[in-house]
């Protein structure tokens, strides 16, 4: 049996897909917006609740306090992770879909028309300089590990608290996110055409193999580290403002 059915042109967000294609871009939109709002609030509206005992919020690590800088010290730090994540190849794909519907999802009609430059023209072209933010982010990773190790010392006494564990997990997750970076993968070995041509190239290939494995899960590390860094800041803020009591081994841990 045959039956004819007229088909209209698909307009904006038009698709023949039947699955819930809009869920992922919507979750990304909500997740990134929530993080943006929380981190902006935490960084800009600073009220000295970013530090208590040996714990320093990762938004403020390393703590840069200068007389000439009247604003939040976090601003001197956060441009690095902000730039790193904004130019990150995973996040680019995510926010081009979720925030700009360009396209909203695969085989879903987004903006149409030939007036399109992608990432080829300034200022969007700057997204391609991901590697420079990566250098700074790797340095920041070292500082976050320093902060994590420091969180086991309070007034000369070695100890451990829930905050120490949270800060250590935070440093680990951010390290895994950074070490899976596409630009790092390229610079370490991806730019080589021949992996077997020298002992140096063979070593670089081995490192490249590791980074490739981490890079395959870049999306996972990106989200887990993003959520955890916000949670870490929230935890330090809550302990510092007296809402939570940090369970720890120090008898002289400051009580706000």
């Amino acid at each position: 049996m045959e039956q004819n059915i007229a088909v209209g042109k698909q307009g904006w967000l038009g698709t023949a897909r039947r699955d819930t294609w809009w869920v992922e871009p919507l979750l990304i939109l909500v997740g990134l917006s929530a993080f943006g709002i929380y981190s902006t609030y935490s960084a800009v509206f600073w009220d000295y609740h970013f530090e208590i005992g040996p714990y320093l919020s990762p938004f403020y690590e390393p703590l840069l306090v200068f007389d000439w800088w009247p604003f939040s010290p976090a601003i001197l730090i956060l441009w690095i992770p902000l730039g790193f994540r904004t130019t990150c190849y995973y996040y680019r794909g995510a926010y081009w879909r979720s925030f700009f519907a360009n396209p909203p999802a695969c085989a879903v009609t987004g903006w149409e028309g030939k007036n399109y430059a992608g990432e080829a023209k300034f200022p969007i072209f700057v997204l391609n300089f991901h590697r420079y933010f990566m250098y700074a982010a790797l340095l920041l990773n070292v500082m976050l590990w320093v902060g994590a190790v420091r969180s086991y010392w309070w007034q000369g006494e070695l100890g451990i608290g829930l905050g120490s564990i949270i800060l250590t997990i935070n440093a680990f997750l951010l390290m895994m996110y950074s070490l899976g970076c596409h630009s790092l993968r390229h610079l370490v070995g991806g730019k080589l055409d021949c992996f077997s041509c020298s002992s140096c190239a063979r070593t670089r290939k081995r490192i490249w193999d590791y980074i490739t494995r981490w890079n395959e899960h870049h999306k996972f590390w990106a989200w887990v580290s993003l959520i955890w860094v916000a949670f870490t800041d929230f935890y330090v803020r809550m302990v510092s403002s007296g809402v939570f009591n940090d369970p720890n081994t120090w008898s002289n841990f400051p009580r706000p």
Binding site: Y89, R92, G93, C106, A117, G118, A120, H182
Partner: peptide, 27 residues
């Protein structure tokens, strides 16, 4: 036109040969 690609990875998702087009070729 390599910079016209904005990394939304749809090419990778539909590839029946499972080539990681975005991660292993375009980027």
């Amino acid at each position: 036109g390599i910079f016209l690609c904005n990394i939304t990875k749809c090419c990778t998702h539909v590839c029946p040969e499972d080539i990681h087009i975005t991660d292993n070729a375009i980027i």
